[in-house]
Design a binder for these strands. Structure first.
Lengths: 214, 214
DNA sequence: AATAAATGAATGAATGTTTATTCATATATT
DNA sequence: AATATATGAATAAACATTCATTCATTTATT
């Protein structure tokens, strides 16, 4: 079930004829447990029972909120993709004349997210590379549209070469950055941390790449 | 079971007392079927029964050659990682005084591999990003040793900055390149093919990155 | 050369486990 | 009491794995 719809129905109930108080943070617990379990054990080995246990919720209750395991994971993933699009749109509004500012801020936010919401970030990273979970065309198209805006800004200012494809920008902004951050966090034993200094490093690398045609 | 061991035992038998001729390409069929099934349906949805069917082999026979599903997939993955290390070692031998030559040749080979052995290449890409399959420390250490050699060459010639970490080089050579190729092949509908021209593009991008400290 | 015995390859039905999903029941709230 | 939430045991489907059996080939015996 869609989260917004759920909350809406839930509030409706409250206004009319509430029988039993909903355990308010149950949905949050389920979401966190899903992400944590998948991060710890991988999607293949994660079962509904494990998620339910980690969320302190009965197994059957999950089916009240989601139609099944796939839907549960999908919704978490799609929510994040929507949030990323929203964030990008917001950053474009903030910096309507500088592609590098948008890119830099976006990268900064990826690092903050990876550090502050490690579970959610690792979860997103896993799904990004899982063939069984693909975002729908609407989400894809909105993302393409936003990247086109960034490209237009960059071409105007000379920050991006006019022959750079939308896919190139998408790849470097959404895959390269995320992979870079997670690779460094995963290998944190040997020099591999991630910090604010990486923002400049990543930004410069990507801007250099986007300056050339491909 | 290890492939080399298998072939060895198999030949031993031939010398003494062979009861029934082995279907020679059965092992090859199983390997190909495993990769193809996983590429088509993902690891989660791939079952032993599906692999056996695609390989034209009985389900139970898989357990003569491998101790189970996990071992079957692992061996295919590890074989590829070993092959990559061997290839890198070979390329270092060929170009002992030029990091860029090694890197360029390695990238070239990745693209050829992705085009000529698409199934195997996609299979490797999937496992590269799957947390449930990690290469052992020996393989990791050998890889690190090889990359250290490349770094030393590059630092001497000025192609690589002395402050670039081994992890950086590893990431860009083994993740960035592979991800780039597969991203472009996956999105082949819109301008996204991969060709020899990408060799120069990728090589230059990576060399530029490795020229700077991180 | 013909036949029988021995051997190991290969099968696929049977087994037992794991898992997603359902549903009868219990519990809490008004 | 009425109503909705929440439970978790029960169910059924899917699955990895095993194993008794079959089959093709080689070796020994005549």
């Amino acid at each position: 079930m869609n989260e917004c719809l759920f909350i809406y129905l839930h509030k409706l109930k409250k206004q009319t004829n509430m029988a039993r108080k909903i355990d308010e943070d149950k949905l949050v617990r389920i979401k966190n447990a899903t992400m944590k379990t998948i991060v710890d054990y991988g999607i293949e080995k994660t079962t509904i029972a494990m998620i339910a246990k980690n969320a302190n919720v009965s197994g059957g209750y999950l089916y009240r909120l989601y139609s099944g395991k796939q839907a549960l994971i999908e919704e978490l993933y799609y929510d994040k993709v929507v949030a990323l699009n929203n964030e990008l749109e917001f950053l474009i509004g903030l910096n309507p004349t500088s592609a590098s500012s948008i890119i830099e801020a976006f990268i900064q936010n990826r690092i903050v997210f990876a550090l502050n919401e490690a579970e959610a970030s690792k979860f997103y990273y896993q799904l990004l590379h899982n063939n069984n979970f693909n975002v729908n065309d609407d989400l894809k198209n909105r993302n393409i549209a936003l990247i086109e805006i960034i490209k237009n800004i960059g071409v105007k200012t000379g920050e991006i070469h006019k022959n750079v494809s939308i896919l190139q920008i998408h790849f470097h902004l959404f895959m390269y950055v995320v992979d870079y951050i997670h690779f460094n966090l995963k290998n944190a034993f040997a020099n591999g941390t991630i910090a604010d200094s990486d923002v400049q490093y990543l930004t410069q690398n990507i801007l250099n790449i986007l300056k050339k045609p491909n």
